[in-house]
Structures are given as C-alpha cells and as structure tokens.
Design a protein around this nucleic acid. Structure first.
Length: 150
DNA sequence: GCCAACGTTGGC
DNA sequence: GCCAACGTTGGC
C-alpha cells in the first residue's frame, strides 16, 4: 500500500467538494511524470489532498484510490479544458483514476508550515521550482504529516 | 540531438 | 499581476 500527494485547485475540486460528492474522477493530468505516478497507484492507496493556486495553499485532507488507471476521457472531449488534439481513442496517452473522500482536516496544513518540517524536506512539494502535481510520499513523510494533523 | 522560444505552474 | 522555474515544441 503506497502513499501519494495530489494537487488540485479548489476552484476545480476541493476536499470539501470531494466530501460532498463522496467520490470523483481525477483527470486532466497533462504531465508525463505525474501521469506515470497515477499509473503506479493501486486501489486502496491513500493520498494527501493538496489545495494549490488559492489563498491558502496546503494539505486539506486525505483521499483514497478506488479505481486504478484508465484512459482519461477529457483528453478526447473537444469541449473539455483538458482536450488533447493529439489523443485518439486508440492512442490516448493520458490517465485518470477514481478517488474517494476519506477525511477533511479541521483546517489546512499550510505550505509555509510544511516547509518548516525537517521530516518533509525531501518532498518535491516543498522544493523550490518543483511543479509536480502528483508525487509519492514515503511512510515516514506520511506519518510526519499525520502527526501535524489539526 | 541541441537549444531557443514559448507555454504552464504555482507561490507570492 | 508578476515572475522564477520547469516542461514542451520545433527549427536546424
């Protein structure tokens, strides 16, 4: 069982939105490194739900994988913001997964606070210039964040 | 295969 | 809105 962190803009999907829905498709990832991590996810894996590009960037809660990698339908939808003209039903390079809500933190664990934690120094999340939107989390890092949980 | 130009991410 | 940093594209 592996641990992950995934970023989402709360305007698109927030932890509160996921809580309301119960489950959701995680799609629109258009970066190969992040996509490869999506493909490595297994049903039952858990992830930190990170809010990005918002007033309070940080870890907002926890979700879990309920459906492993499958072709991302938004890549084939001309009306989608994530449409990829180079993708076809036969050759769709992009991947989606399905996730479910597990927990919403009482408040967001803010990025600047996470940056102060030496246990998290190796996470791409806190490293300068890193833009990775899907990343693995070690068991130690997972435990360190859970210990900070509000 | 190199690398400049361009586009995107994401914090601030 | 700015801009640093990264990823992608495309000419050569």
């Amino acid at each position: 069982m592996a641990y992950w962190l995934m970023k989402s803009e709360p305007d698109e999907l927030s932890i509160q939105g996921l809580e309301k829905l119960g489950q959701a498709r995680w799609d629109g990832v258009r970066n190969y490194q992040a996509r490869n991590f999506l493909r490595a996810m297994a049903v039952g894996d858990t992830f930190f739900f990170y809010h990005s590009s918002c007033p309070e960037p940080g870890i907002a809660g926890i979700g879990k994988i309920i459906q492993a990698a499958y072709p991302d339908p938004t890549a084939l939808d001309p009306d989608s913001h994530y449409f990829d003209p180079k993708a076809s039903p036969d050759k769709n390079p992009w991947t989606a997964i399905d996730v479910a809500h597990v927990e919403t933190f009482r408040h967001v664990l803010k990025l600047d606070y996470l940056k102060q934690q030496t246990a998290l120094a190796q996470m791409p999340l806190v490293q300068k210039g890193s833009r990775l939107s899907v990343m693995p989390v070690t068991a130690e890092q997972w435990a360190a964040v859970v210990a900070l949980k509000p």
